[in-house]
Simulated scan of single mutants.
Amino acid sequence: MTVNRTTACATSAGVALPEQPAAAPAGVRSAERPAPVVRDLRERAGRSPHGLLFGAGDLVVITGLPGSGKTTLMRRAVRGARIDSQDTRARWDARAPRLLPYAVYRPLVRLAHYAALRRALSGGDGLVVHDCGTQTWVRDWLARAARRRGGTLHLLFLDVTPDTALDGQRRRGRGVSRYAFLRHRRAAARLLRAVERGALPHGCDSAVLLDREAADVLRRIAFTR
Rank of each mutant, 00 (worst) to 15 (best):
L156P: 06
V37Y: 00
A116C: 03
T224I: 14
R172G: 04
F157D: 04
D125L: 02
L59F: 11
G123Y: 15
L100E: 04
R29A: 08
G14D: 08
R185H: 03
L121N: 12
L59H: 13
L111N: 07
T161Y: 01
L156H: 11
G173T: 01
A145R: 13
L153F: 08
W137N: 08
L156D: 10
R118E: 04
T72A: 04
P162S: 08
G124N: 11
V109E: 05
R225W: 11
F157H: 12
R39T: 15
G151R: 02
A143N: 07
V78S: 01
R186N: 03
R89C: 00
D131C: 15
R47K: 13
C204A: 15
D87H: 02
R190E: 15
L182R: 09
A116K: 01
L156V: 13
D159I: 09
R118N: 03
P25F: 00
N4P: 02
V160G: 01
Y179W: 10
R39P: 00
R119E: 04
Y179I: 00
T152C: 11
R95S: 07
I62M: 10
L142H: 12
A13D: 15
D205L: 07
D131L: 14
G55Q: 00
G14Q: 05
A16K: 05
L73Q: 03
Q169T: 01
A56P: 15
R172F: 01
D58K: 00
V15C: 09
A145D: 09
R33W: 03
R91Y: 07
P201A: 14
P49N: 10
R75I: 00
R225G: 10
V129L: 14
D87R: 02
D163M: 02
S85Y: 03
G168W: 07
R76W: 14
V208C: 12
R33H: 10
V38H: 08
G67D: 11
